[in-house]
């Protein structure tokens, strides 16, 4: 039985050969039965962290315990206690779905008969019974994630590590995966999930940590984090006109001095300001833009999202759009021998 938290991380650091500092002294704990999210942009250190927790990658410093076991001293026991589905980690395309699961089962110590029974159960659970005898290589993206998830569950692990389980999936498949995860968590499985999708973290995670440049920038329940932003978010899209830089800088400076404005930044989409009361602040913000010679195309007031929480702590937004492309480029160049780590 697990004593203490399901995951305990203290002062974890990872420097890759060549000097890249991927994880820079993070500490957190995940309680048993919790649904914990690790949220951050691509390259923030999420995958590195999950690989260290799952014993696939050695750490540079710090202490890591999973299921009450030290990952360095007892890697085998840790592996037996956890289930893992990583983003870039590997399905066996030439194997049939059922064979893939049965092999996972016997490698985790199940007997062949047990593995067969369990595979049938899990194929049913993830809705892949009808394609069980087809090769994994013929599966769609959503089916691949589900067979991978089923593989991670073959030995009934108490802790599940999932690296971006829905990245690249269509909306319907994402919801299906989410429902499976919620059901597992309801049955008592501790889930540690990384994601770069705010909506995913918001819906699934009871608690989450935000990571950026290898450091934790915020931690708490989604509601707590959003409340921490403390007010409304005003987005202003504007037409920069003739002299963009000066006008924009002047408007930003003016907005920052307005009463009730806690934070204001400019990004590609325009200005984003955190204010106590959106309705009260909007007229003054519009005036500031007019004074700077900028015409406003659109102004909206929203309740804070997790995106705004991230913005508040890092001054940047998490960009979903270009993240997948980066990951693919990285993998491609790595395997072509261009950019070896």
């Amino acid at each position: 039985m697990i004593n203490g938290p399901a995951v305990l991380v203290e002062g974890l650091g990872k420097t890759y050969p060549g000097g890249v500092r991927a994880v820079d002294g993070i500490s957190f704990a995940v309680e048993r039965g919790e649904f914990f999210g690790f949220l951050g942009p691509n390259g923030a250190g999420k995958t590195t962290t999950i690989k260290i927790l799952a014993t696939l990658l050695p750490k540079t410093e710090g202490r890591v315990e999973v299921a009450g076991l030290d990952v360095i001293r007892e890697p085998k026991a840790v592996r037996q206690a956890i289930g893992v589905a990583l983003q870039e980690v590997g399905l066996d395309d030439l194997s049939k779905g059922r064979d893939f699961l049965e092999l996972q089962g016997v490698l985790y110590g199940l007997s062949r008969a047990e593995a067969r029974t369990r595979a049938t159960e899990l194929l049913e659970l993830v809705g892949l019974s009808s394609v069980a005898d087809r090769k994994v290589g013929s599966y769609s993206g959503g089916m691949r994630r589900r067979i991978d998830l089923a593989g991670a569950l073959m030995h009934n692990p108490g802790v599940l590590f999932l690296d971006e389980p829905t990245t690249g999936l269509d909306p319907q498949s994402r919801i299906t995966v989410w429902e499976h995860l919620e059901e597992l968590n309801a049955r008592g499985v501790t889930i540690f999930l990384t994601t770069q999708h705010m909506d995913e973290a918001d819906r699934l995670c009871r608690r989450l940590a935000m990571i950026d440049h290898g450091r934790l920038v915020a931690e708490g329940s989604p509601a707590e984090l959003k409340a921490g932003v403390g007010g409304d978010i005003v987005h202003v899209a504007f037409d920069a006109g003739e002299s963009p830089d000066e006008g924009v800088a002047a408007a930003l400076a003016a907005v920052r001095t307005l009463p009730g404005v806690r934070q204001a930044d400019i990004d590609d989409n325009g200005l984003i300001a955190t204010v106590g009361d959106g309705g009260a602040a909007a007229p003054a913000i519009m005036a500031a833009f007019q004074d700077a010679g900028l015409s406003i195309a659109n102004l909206s007031i929203t309740r804070p999202s997790l995106d705004d929480v991230f913005l508040q702590h890092t001054g940047r937004q998490i960009r979903d759009s270009d993240a997948d492309g980066d990951a693919e480029d990285r993998m491609w160049s790595q395997w072509m021998g261009v950019n070896r780590r």
């Binding site: 696939l56 590997g90 399905l91 985790y108």
Partner: peptide
């Protein structure tokens, strides 16, 4: 797939 095997005990 090699990593998958390495993740197992």
């Amino acid at each position: 797939y090699v990593d998958k095997l390495l993740l197992s005990p």
